[in-house]
Simulated assay, not measured.
Amino acid sequence: MPKILVVDDHAVVRSGLMMLLNGKHNIEVVGEAADGEEGIQAAQLLKPDVVLMDLNMPPGMDGLTATEKLRQLMPDVAILILTMHDDDEYLFRAIHVGASGYILKSAPHDELLTAIRSVAAGNAYLYPTATKRLMNEYMDRIKHGDNVDTYGSLSEREKEALALIAKGFSNKEIAEQLIISVKTVESHKSNIMEKLGLRTRPELVKYAAKKGLLNFE
């Protein structure tokens, strides 16, 4: 049963989401917060599986800043951006700072439940038109000959994990070196493969070699 933390500056929205989700559909709402800073503190205390994060929460910390900080502090937690902003800039920035998903507040309840279950399972979720826009953006960059290299989208932990995976260390060995759980290593590996568009370990090793990450000193 996924444990959910709701972070939104509107008390009515938080109450509505809690009434919709709590104790239903095998979902448990464990807490709420009114801005990003409160959300980070609550997440560290309550250890949710998924944080539903609003973007704009004046006058407190905004959702993008909170998402970036929370991903650094708790890489295992999934952060689902739930917002009214159907905007490319917000969408791309949310992905860049490490959000696991992005969904509009206007989405049907069933879609929200699907998004929660998806990110709780370690997958990414974007609403359909957002996925199409991302694909169009990617294809446009290819068309114009841009060098599409998503290495910069990896977190520092993911970059460390990438180098160790490429060098042949096991998940357990990587976990010991980075002082994280094996589950987190597996999550990092999945995120790395997805972000870099890789399918197999040999492809990962080849990529790491090109990036100069196979120094065994």
Rank of each mutant, 00 (worst) to 15 (best):
G122D: 01
N136R: 11
S153C: 03
R117F: 10
M84D: 01
A94L: 02
D110H: 11
L113F: 08
L80W: 13
L104A: 08
I180T: 06
G98N: 06
I116P: 01
I165C: 09
L164D: 06
E156N: 12
Y102A: 00
A115W: 13
I174R: 09
K143S: 06
A166N: 08
E137T: 12
V148E: 00
G152H: 07
T131I: 14
R117S: 12
F169R: 08
Y138L: 03
D140R: 15
A175G: 10
I116Q: 03
L82G: 01
I174H: 07
I165P: 09
A166W: 12
H96L: 11
V148Q: 00
G122W: 14
E173A: 15
N171Q: 15
D86K: 12
L126D: 00
D110F: 04
P128W: 12
L80E: 07
Y102Q: 05
S153H: 14
I180R: 12
E89W: 03
K159A: 04
P128Q: 09
V97N: 05
F92D: 06
T150R: 14
L154I: 07
K143H: 05
Y102L: 02
E137F: 10
P128N: 08
L113M: 05
M135A: 05
I103V: 09
N171W: 11
D149P: 11
I103G: 01
A94R: 02
S106P: 01
Y138Q: 08
T114Y: 03
H96E: 15
D110T: 13
N136E: 15
K159L: 06
L178R: 09
I116F: 10
Y127A: 10
I142V: 15
H144N: 00
V119N: 10
Q177N: 10
R157N: 13
E158V: 03
T83Y: 05
H144Y: 00
T114N: 01
R157T: 05
Q177F: 04
I165V: 14
K159C: 06
A121C: 04
L178W: 11
A121K: 15
E156H: 12
L134C: 08
H144F: 00
Y127S: 15
R141F: 00
T150S: 14
I81F: 10
A124T: 12
N123F: 13
T129V: 14
E173N: 07
S155R: 14
A166K: 12
D88R: 02
S118H: 13
D146R: 14
N136I: 07
I81E: 00
M84A: 12
D110L: 09
I180Q: 09
I81M: 13
M139R: 00
E160R: 11
Y125W: 14
A107W: 07
G98W: 07
M84Y: 02
A94F: 09
I180L: 09
R117E: 14
K159D: 03
